[in-house]
Amino acid sequence: MMRKALVVMTVLACALAISLACQSDEVPVDRSPLPTVAAPPYICDHIPLKAVELMTGVHNPLVRGYFDFTISEGLGAGGCAVYQREGERLKVLQISLTPGGYPGAVEEQIEDGALRLPEILPGVIGSYFKPSDSETNDAYALLVRGKAEISIQMEIGAAGRDNAADVLALMKLIAPKLLTDASAPSAKTETSPTPKKD
């Protein structure tokens, strides 16, 4: 009986030791806020790698894409896709710049419960949100200035972080780099005409 109790105690002690060892191998979630200034190294020449790694939890990700600012009358277009390096190499993040921006799409998202982006640059309108039923910590942001549109689709975010705040912070970092002068509102659209007095 004594021997049986000793064997059970030894097995439990080993199981506890293995359990603690496995827990110490887990990488804790980095809850640091995203940088407030875009700094190298960059992916796709314009997206800060540090911000991407923090918000997705993927270090040294696989990256595909580029941006071309010489097309669409200077508005530019392009995209940057970020993938996990291990396993099925799932896409975790997609950033797109398109010359087909439509402010009404942003207003519709806000009416559906998305939060309004602060005015990152003059003449922009944007929204961001995280689905309430998300199982992959996904979050999204959309910004429009003139006909230029930037969208951030984080398909898989780092668990334990404020994923909506992360897409907002990334938009603040990349919008000034991706929006060209061609998308800026002209002086005619910024000011309304002065009414004539009779």
Score class of each variant (00 low, 15 high):
R161L: 14
E108S: 15
A139H: 06
E149Q: 14
G126F: 00
G101D: 09
G157R: 02
A158D: 01
L90Q: 10
E88C: 00
S132F: 13
R85H: 15
E149Y: 01
L143M: 09
G160E: 10
E108P: 00
A158G: 03
P131E: 04
P99C: 12
R145N: 02
I110M: 08
R145A: 04
E107D: 14
G76Q: 10
A141K: 02
T70I: 03
Y102P: 00
I120W: 01
L115T: 07
N137T: 07
D133K: 00
D138Q: 13
I95Y: 12
G65P: 04
G100R: 06
A159W: 03
I152N: 08
G57N: 11
I156W: 02
G160F: 11
I152E: 12
G113Y: 05
P118F: 01
L75P: 03
V63M: 04
Y128W: 03
Q153K: 05
Y140K: 02
G146T: 01
Q109H: 05
L143W: 06
R116P: 08
D68E: 11
G146E: 04
V92A: 05
Q94I: 06
D112I: 02
G100Y: 14
L93F: 03
I156R: 07
V144I: 13
E88S: 11
I156V: 14
Y128G: 08
G79S: 15
D133T: 04
V106D: 09
G146M: 03
A141G: 14
K91P: 05
L93M: 05
P99R: 01
R89C: 11
G87T: 05
D133Y: 11
C80W: 06
L97V: 10
G100L: 07
S72A: 13
E107R: 06
I156S: 07
M55G: 13
A141C: 03
F67K: 05
I156H: 09
E119T: 06
R64W: 08
G123N: 13
L121G: 10
I125G: 14
R85N: 11
A105Q: 06
V106Y: 09
K147G: 12
S134G: 06
P118M: 00
I120R: 00
T56K: 00
E108I: 14
V92F: 05
P131R: 01
S72E: 07
E149F: 06
H59E: 13
T70A: 15
I156T: 08
E73I: 02
S132W: 14
A77H: 10
L93V: 00
T56F: 10
K147C: 04
A139S: 13
G146C: 12
L54V: 02
R116D: 04
I120G: 08
G57M: 04
I156P: 03
C80Q: 06
L54M: 06
G123E: 12
Y83E: 05
M154K: 08
Q94N: 13
I156C: 08
G100H: 12
S151L: 04
G126M: 11
V144N: 04
P118H: 09
A139G: 13
L54Q: 02
L93C: 12
R116T: 13
G123L: 12
A158N: 09
D138A: 13
L117H: 00
S127C: 13
V144E: 10
G101L: 04
P99F: 11
R85C: 06
